[in-house]
Design a protein around this nucleic acid. Structure first.
Length: 114
DNA sequence: ACGTTGACTGGTC
DNA sequence: TGACCAGCCAACG
């Protein structure tokens, strides 16, 4: 396997690992994950990684949103409505593709270190 | 090789 | 929060 590809897969795995650590009923942002991994590039890489999220892995991608609490990635779900549906099922209030109690449900990966 | 694009973010107004 | 801009890096045509 090419070295570059291996490196990218490791980055993906890190992203997935952090996403899996997000407690039920909580959400976090792409930037927070990027920062936790050492800001390797930028938050866009996290979004790119999510775009390659393996469907067969138990990745709660619906818990990853942008800094404004907006469900920017809902269109990448199948179907898109499922993202909000999953969040609401966990107790996260969503309205108009946006987290209502964003501050309350926000979870910072850094807390995982404690 | 270059320009565009994107599940982003932080600063400014 | 909204709009606009710049920085960011890999993928794609």
């Amino acid at each position: 396997m090419p070295e570059a590809q291996q490196k990218q897969i490791n980055f993906f795995n890190d992203v997935y690992a952090v996403v899996k650590l997000i407690p039920r009923g909580k959400v976090t942002s792409y930037g927070a994950i990027a920062a936790y991994l050492g800001a390797r590039g930028s938050a866009r890489m996290v979004g790119w990684a999510m775009n390659n999220t393996p469907k067969d892995g138990n990745i709660p991608a619906h818990r990853v949103i942008n800094r404004k609490g907006l469900l920017t990635g809902k269109v990448h779900f199948n179907p898109p409505e499922q993202m909000q549906q999953l969040l609401e099922a966990e107790g996260v209030l969503v309205e108009n593709d946006q987290i209502k109690n964003f501050k309350d449900v926000y979870w910072d990966p850094q807390l995982q270190l404690l």
